[in-house]
Design a protein around this nucleic acid. Sequence first.
DNA 1: CGTAGGTGTTAGTCTATACTAATTCGAGGA
DNA 2: TCCTCGAATTAGTATAGACTAACACCTACG
Lengths: 231, 231
Amino acid sequence: MQPALRDPNPPLTRSVEDYLKAIYHLSSQGGFAATSDIAAMLDVAPPSVSGMVKRLSETGLIEHVPYRGVQLTSQGRRAALRMIRRHRVLELYLTQHLGYDWGNVHAEAERLEHAVSDDLIERMANALGQPQYDPHGDPIPTAAGDIEEAELVALGEAPIGTKLELRQVGTQDPARLHYFAEQGLTPGVLLTVSERQPFNGPTTIALVPSGDPRVVGRELAQLLWCRALGT
Amino acid sequence: MQPALRDPNPPLTRSVEDYLKAIYHLSSQGGFAATSDIAAMLDVAPPSVSGMVKRLSETGLIEHVPYRGVQLTSQGRRAALRMIRRHRVLELYLTQHLGYDWGNVHAEAERLEHAVSDDLIERMANALGQPQYDPHGDPIPTAAGDIEEAELVALGEAPIGTKLELRQVGTQDPARLHYFAEQGLTPGVLLTVSERQPFNGPTTIALVPSGDPRVVGRELAQLLWCRALGT
DNA sequence: CGTAGGTGTTAGTCTATACTAATTCGAGGA
DNA sequence: TCCTCGAATTAGTATAGACTAACACCTACG
Ligand SMILES: [Mn+2]
Ligand SMILES: [Mn+2]
Ligand SMILES: [Mn+2]
Ligand SMILES: [Mn+2]
């Protein structure tokens, strides 16, 4: 008997899947993902990233330019989008069918995404009516690997007087998410930008149609991604 | 800064959790679990078991009598029952809420059991109405770690003429489970034992109340665990 | 235009878990 | 009683993935 050759297509490990997701998010604005940013996102030491980067580029999932950073290959992007679909379908299922609130789903989905089968994800997606967005407003890639690319502006950058629809909340921090929910700042909400204090000051908005005002500090305003609806 | 002491209570790994479950099942009839039986159940080589046995006994989860086998400590049994609760709640949730059939749930639950939180399991159990049995009729341990111990007899051993309630189906093999379902042999079914051929021959039964006959070969009859209901 | 400081990589180690090959144990038959 | 053979263990190796310490590279500032 031959000395068993290596499986040419081993299933991805949990670690590999998380690295691919991190690289996807860090390079989604078109550039390279830096070693230190990956390390920070995954809470590992930079040399651990260098080691993984070597393995991933040997298997063709990423391309590595030494001292510059990494990018996903098309194979790597496909794998990353599959994980993101899993994560977001899980988050939505947990909130819609099991009573989770949007501040707590992330941690649960972060583990489950590696354990579910494709079949289970598609069953959940069907139970949810093939949803397009997760509880935080992030687009859910299709099973084929397509993802919506929206042109959004952070609330903290939106010009005074514009009317906006809140579309995505860019944090997974439970405390911030709970606060946003309390303030009624959830995806789908309409608002107009009333004013902004100088020197990175807060943005004041009015909810539509109630007119209720909200004052949103700079840090949080950078997390609220909105679609412009005109003046 | 001190050279970081070892975490005295590290979370159990996936492997450890599966070993504990296997040892629980193999020693549930009161004896020791043998190295080779554990190896066969987990599909690993015997030396892998010896290695894991050493680690598990060092951490106090099992007791090892060399060349005899292993038993769970009370701490090990607690951990094993926790996993069994997870597994069985997951199996039932997948069948009841996501349309899985009882032949396919096992593989899915085998992976998910290691990834879910206690919170998620309790939410699923609540959605199911705190169920007592999984799709195969196996008792679900309580969150506190209690499990029902039923006195059951294999259909292949039941005396002619007795009336029985089918309670547990002792296999996870999808093909066998599909066949049982086709034959209407699922937990809760009532039946009487009509006759049995000698030399490990098949058992013939009549379903109650329909009276429909079924001929069940020795191998399958040993998988159907029943509660005696009298003559 | 040359270097200092930060970023990235290499070197070396550790743990968990698996494997094969070699060895040892022990219980049942001669 | 003793031997044999299957079961169990030990010895040695491999892989994934993490870490720290040490070194290399790049660039922006002086
Ligand atoms: Mn994850
Ligand atoms: Mn989300
Ligand atoms: Mn398992
Ligand atoms: Mn079951």
